[in-house]
Amino acid sequence: MQTKANALSQGFIRCHDCGYLVKIVNQPLSCPRCDSHLHARHPHSLQRTTAFLLSSFLLYIPANIFPIMIVNQFGAGEPNTIAGGIIELIDSGMIPIGLLVLVASILVPSLKLIGISLLLLCVHFRWQVNARRWTTMYRVIAFVGRWSMLDIFMISILVDLVNFSGIQIIAGPAATAFAAVVILTMFAAENFDPRLLWDTQQDL
């Protein structure tokens, strides 16, 4: 089943949208099966990924220092940062849920930022690595990204449900920043082309 060649070096392009394999003759512009533009690699993959990544790094700071939600109890407001909410959950004995939120809101976004940075550096500096392992890392990053929306959805539920005269939960400024981080890192992962990891390996 295995040949030893990159499809591109043999003159084939796989359509990014429908997966159709096209033999390049005089640079066909669109896929014969689904009409979308053909490109061997995501266009400007590194530039776009870097742009999304840098924006999410910047927004990651306000997302973590500002309160993500504020609990107003009888007039006294108690702001909660992302980390504060987790500590509160663990303090009140809800350790599994606390760990879940810790993974989704802190570990996943920060490891994702680091992971995408490493992928970019690896391609840019042509590091000779175990490409299979790095591709797996990319796959994990692309898969887990959406789960960080957990905190955002939870805020929308809490803000809606806890809205009484005595007690109220309102969303804080970090919510916008955090949602932006999650979406921008998803864009970054989507724009990164893992095939670049294989293109830069010399001994394949």
């Binding site: 040949t3 084939f12 096209v22 591709t135």
Partner: peptide
């Protein structure tokens, strides 16, 4: 232009013989 007995891996671009 159309090639039906090859496929390519979407993530590493390895040229594969099409096996269903």
């Amino acid at each position: 232009m159309k090639i039906s007995h090859y496929d390519a891996c979407p993530e590493c671009d390895l040229l594969l013989n099409l096996v269903a």
